[in-house]
């Protein structure tokens, strides 16, 4: 993703992320590994599909980018490399999940986002792309952030 020169984290954001990182190191969400890097503003998180689900033992990578005003503003969360086949995950890695956009609350954390995403994967009953995948991905060709999309959340089952 080529996001146009992101602004650095505010001090409040950096403080909060340090707290989250520390908490993660003590108590990481089950099924997730964070490869600690020098970049506090971009986390790469490894996800392993939960046992007895369609994605059992499959490994995927989430890229979490934090805005200057985190946690007021939601982080941008996308799958990198090969996104899982899922009715709410587009082939460019964008995820249709309300808490990442309209329903974001500053009380949520990277950890809680990860748990929501794993739960979304676990409750899937078919490995398929969203029906409007091609149209959406074509629209996002120039590296648009999923946060610029006007999402329409309709399915509360998966």
């Amino acid at each position: 993703m080529s996001s146009s020169s992101p602004k650095g984290l505010s001090r409040i954001a950096a403080n909060r992320l340090h707290k989250e990182l520390k908490e993660w190191q003590v108590n990481p969400p089950t099924g997730f590994k964070h490869k600690v890097s020098d970049n506090l503003q971009r986390w790469i998180v490894e996800v392993t599909g939960a046992p007895n689900t369609l994605y059992e033992n499959e490994t995927y990578y989430l890229q979490v980018d934090f805005p200057e005003n985190y946690p007021m503003e939601a982080p941008q969360v996308i799958f990198t490399q090969n996104p899982p086949l899922h009715p709410h995950i587009y082939s460019n890695g964008h995820i249709c999940l309300d808490i990442l956009y309209d329903s974001w609350s500053p009380a949520m954390t990277v950890s809680s986002i990860c748990i929501s995403i794993l739960s979304m994967l676990s409750s899937s009953t078919e490995k398929a792309r969203p029906v409007d995948n091609d149209r959406y991905v074509r629209n996002c060709r120039n590296g648009k952030s999923p946060k610029e999309t006007r999402w329409w959340f309709h399915d509360d089952k998966v």
Partner: peptide, 20 residues
């Protein structure tokens, strides 16, 4: 701005990160 969090700034991970 609230005071910088000494606990974070002087934490081992942060010191290591800075040294690096």
């Amino acid at each position: 701005d609230f005071l910088p969090d000494a606990e974070v700034i002087f934490s081992n991970t942060e010191i290591e990160r800075k040294a690096k």
